[in-house]
Design a protein around this nucleic acid. Structure first.
Length: 705
RNA sequence: GCCCUUGUAGCUCAACGGUAGAGCGCGCGGCUCAUAAUCGCUAGGUUACAGGUUCGAAUCCUGUCGAGGGCACCA
């Protein structure tokens, strides 16, 4: 039996589920169902990644143990999955499972026992260096510190004190020895990384040079994770722990899961990932696997992000994120599943708008598939007492069939169906879900046309047309049966309903579409009770509700918590050497101490300056170089990131507000001796500066108080 | 600044180098089995632009412009 193993990423448990998670899981669910239908021994993994410093911290803030916290989050994922009909997975993997600990340690040992392709030790001890806050006693991630203009060291967002550059002992994986292996392998296997544009990116990243990877933290800074085997002072950090779930869950390196069948499933693996974590699933993961003498996956497919209807990224602050609860309340799971698969070209970004969701539902599902089913079954009820008539037309009746515009034999229809089926499966296998579905809708149109041409409501009046009418009804019903089988992986509930309405009792999930053959639908089958499978959606009504809803969410968003913050399908943040998540900084941390005294204010020396020189800096997209006259003996050189927003020539002569006593700082090799003040305007596209100026005439060098 | 992808009808997307199509939306007409569904017809294009290769280019090559992305950089 052919095997097939598909995975979603295991989602990082610092964030509650959002549309991005839902989408990846829907796609994987549909693929897994399709493979199982077709007789594959298929296995589908999804789950949560539950270790690391971020989980540790969030739990502490919530007065929970890390375990309590991740139990909560993974339950939330499961709950959302249930809500959206995501029942096709075979394991919900959690990295806190005891067997995973054992298996990760075994993987580590296996890797450590081997040599790199260049004959070096794979794992070695070194020092990991990062910004450290002594008050927190923690290393800080990119999202947890800010670098103020003019300062060399960033500050802790909580304590506002300058961070120290601290090194701690860490194990490293010698990733730098794997570049050639990776490039060769990626070159050789064209389907290894898809789509191609993403593959190119990975290749160019490798070519730019790989650094060795820190794969542990001292236990005193990160205890929430798997201990390094043979060195209890260290915790295995992030990628070795998280990525390896794909093998530990199916029995690598542990007894508990052995029965799942590692050898079997690891022979044909597909990882679906968001484009933001592609690099880790290729460069790191391939290298780890190679280092452990394991085979690489068949395909790692990076899909795009869902943008809002205007093509903007979704975020809590913009208030354009899709609220899953609301989505669930207003739309059935099948409608959503159909929409995301039909609307997004897999691999590219897609737009998610309620308006197009409603339009597509009404057009394709209510008016299309739903209505075809409804009109067909209702005619069988009305004209044939609810029993499916034979589709055969006897030769002496051919003349009548032709007269009604119906071809006497069904060969035309059979080839249409078979062709559509083959194309559907081909496209589906190639991740072209959108095109695959489109093909089936051409079949629906064809049957609608057949019915209109034949005019059953007239045939019923003519005794001689009894067989023609039968044929029309049979052909339409048989087509519906085929469609149900093919569409089951996409819309399991609706297809099951239609199937039942046709009067069929076998299990669609086990009907192999490849074996569909025409006229298997039994004559005389009593059709079941009929009702609308896809009720038409009242667009104006729902759109109004959405407007109401979004007002509420927008006002809630500001107060909302930090645990549900990661916006765009990323299960991990981007910087590999730092900690991973975009945990929103604790804004409440400020509160009423948030005042400064007049003395504090007077420390800042704000002065009026006139721009004498403004020019672009070669090879810098954002920076402009200014010479600003502050009434001092010499104009100051100041650099500012305004190049994207202002034409330098037009700024010459303009009077601006300058922070005059800022510590000088080098940027792009040039020293910046101050800072220009500007308002930061937030709009749909992000932030945009507006320079502070005066309406009145002001003297150069005047101080602002 | 380097690299990648992309530009086709109002919108979303198709089209082995061989007569540019579909769905939605718009306009008109027909029908009544059906969820105001469905069927027909009409409208809409110098395939971003300029060159080149070819008997033949939306497709291949070069350049320009626009859009998106990766890296560097910046935060």
């Amino acid at each position: 039996m052919k095997t097939f193993y598909i995975t979603t990423p295991i989602y990082y448990a610092n964030s509650l589920p959002h549309l991005g998670h839902l989408y990846t899981t829907i796609v994987a669910d549909a693929i897994a169902k399709n493979k199982k239908q077709r007789g594959f021994d298929a296995y589908f993994l999804t789950g949560t990644d539950e270790h690391g410093i971020n989980i540790q911290r969030i739990a502490e803030q919530n007065d929970q143990t890390p375990k309590q916290y991740v139990d909560y989050v993974s339950d939330e994922f499961k709950r959302i999955y249930r809500q959206f009909g995501l029942n096709g997975f075979d394991v919900f993997m959690r990295t806190t499972e005891p067997f995973h600990y054992e298996a990760v340690q075994n993987l580590w040992r296996q890797i450590a026992a081997n040599r790199t392709p260049k004959g070096n030790e794979t794992i070695y001890k070194g020092f990991y260096e990062a910004w450290f806050c002594p008050n927190c006693a923690e290393f800080k991630t990119e999202a947890e510190y800010e670098l103020r203009a003019g300062e060399d060291a960033p500050r802790c967002l909580i304590h506002e004190r300058t961070l120290d550059r601290v090194a701690e002992e860490s194990y490293f994986f010698r990733l730098s020895d794997y570049s050639e292996f990776l490039l060769e392998t990626i070159e050789k296997h064209r389907n290894l990384i898809r789509p191609e544009a993403r593959r190119n990116e990975v290749v160019s990243f490798i070519k730019s040079g790989l650094q060795d990877l820190s794969i542990s933290r001292e236990k005193k800074s990160v205890y929430w994770g798997v201990p390094v085997p043979g060195d209890a002072n260290h915790t295995i950090y992030l990628w070795v722990d998280a990525l390896s779930n794909y093998i530990t869950a199916i029995g690598y390196g542990n007894e508990e899961r052995k029965s799942v069948g590692f050898e079997k499933y690891w022979s044909n693996v597909t990882h679906l990932v968001g484009k933001d974590i592609l690099r880790f699933h290729t460069i790191y993961w391939f290298s780890f696997l190679h280092a452990a003498n394991l085979k690489l996956p068949e395909t790692v497919f990076a899909h795009g992000l869902w943008l809002d209807s205007h093509g903007r990224k979704m975020s809590k602050t913009l208030g354009n994120a899709i609220d899953l609860e609301f989505l669930h309340r207003n739309f059935s799971t099948d409608v959503i599943r159909y929409f995301v698969l039909r609307e997004m070209v897999f691999g590219q970004d897609g737009k998610f708008g309620y308006e197009s969701l409603i339009e597509r539902t009404n057009a394709d599902l209510a008016s299309g598939l739903g209505n075809l089913s409804s009109r067909t079954l209702s005619m069988i009820n009305k004209y044939r007492d609810g029993a499916i008539p034979s589709g055969k037309i006897q030769e002496h009746n051919y003349i009548y069939a032709k007269r009604a515009g119906i071809s006497p034999d069904e060969q035309d229809l059979v080839s249409v169906l078979e062709h559509a089926r083959d194309e559907f499966l081909r496209r589906f296998d190639n991740y072209e879900f959108s095109l695959a579905l489109e093909i089936l809708w051409t079949v629906i149109a064809r049957i609608d046309k057949m019915i209109s041409d034949a005019k059953p409501w007239e045939l019923i009046k003519d005794e001689n047309q009894a067989e023609t009418l039968n044929a029309v009804l049979y052909r339409a019903t048989e087509t519906l049966r085929w469609l149900c089988v093919l569409l089951y992986p996409v819309m399991s509930e609706a297809t099951a309903k239609i199937y039942a309405q046709i009067g069929l009792s076998e299990d669609v999930s086990k009907t192999n579409p490849e074996n569909l053959s025409y006229a298997e639908l039994k004559v005389g089958t009593k059709i079941g009770e009929t009702e609308a499978v896809f009720p038409r959606i009242d667009k104006t009504k729902v759109m109004n509700e959405i407007k109401e809803q979004s007002k509420e969410t927008k006002s809630n968003a500001e107060i909302s918590n930090q645990t549900a913050s990661a916006p765009n399908g990323d299960s991990r943040a981007r910087n590999p050497t730092d900690v991973l998540i975009n945990t929103a900084p604790t804004e409440e941390a400020n509160g009423e101490d948030d005042f400064i005294t007049i003395d504090d204010f007077l420390k800042v020396e704000l002065r009026v300056g006139e721009i004498r020189v403004a020019e672009r800096i070669p090879k810098a997209d954002k920076l402009l170089r200014f010479e600003i006259d502050l009434g001092e003996e010499k104009p100051r050189q100041i650099l500012a990131g305004l190049a994207e927003y202002y034409e330098p020539e037009k700024l010459i002569g303009r009077k601006v507000v300058v922070v005059a006593n800022l510590k000088p700082r080098k940027m792009r090799g040039l020293e910046s001796q101050g800072m220009i003040c500007a308002a930061s305007l937030e709009n749909d596209e992000g932030e945009k500066p507006a320079l502070a100026t005066f309406i009145e005439n002001v003297d150069i060098g005047a101080r602002l108080k």
